[in-house]
C-alpha cells in the first residue's frame, strides 16, 4: 500500500488499476482503496479493479469506481473516464 501511495504521488495518474486473479485479492483491494481514503487522495483519480474473479459484488465490496474482466474492458473504461473518443 505504501508503494501504491508513493507511486501515485509521484506520477499523479488519472486512473489507478488494481489487478487480482485470486479471491485472496478481494481484501487487499479493499484495504488499498481504504488507504487512499485515509490519505485524502481518493477523489484525485478513478479506480478500476480487474481479474477473472472480479464482478459487481467485488466492486461494491472494495468501493472501486468500476471493474472489468479483461484488458479491453480496462481500456474502454479509461477512454470513458478521460473522454477519449473511439
Amino acid at each position: 500500500m505504501k508503494t501504491f501511495i508513493e507511486e501515485i504521488n509521484a506520477y499523479e495518474p488519472d486512473v489507478v488499476a488494481l489487478s487480482g486473479f485470486l479471491t485472496l485479492a478481494f481484501d487487499s483491494m479493499k484495504e488499498t482503496i481504504e488507504a487512499f481514503d485515509k490519505e485524502g487522495m481518493r477523489s484525485k483519480f478513478k479506480i478500476m479493479i480487474g481479474g477473472g474473479q472480479i464482478d459487481e459484488a467485488v466492486r461494491t465490496y472494495t468501493s472501486a469506481d468500476a471493474f472489468g474482466i479483461n484488458a479491453v474492458e480496462a481500456v474502454n473504461l479509461c477512454k470513458i473516464w478521460l473522454g477519449v473518443k473511439s
Binding site: T23, F26, Q53, I54, A57, V58, T60, Y61
Partner: peptide, 9 residues
C-alpha cells in the same frame, strides 16, 4: 454460486 458472493456476501 459466484466466488464473490461466497467471500464478500
Amino acid at each position: 454460486v459466484e466466488a464473490s458472493t461466497m467471500v464478500t456476501g
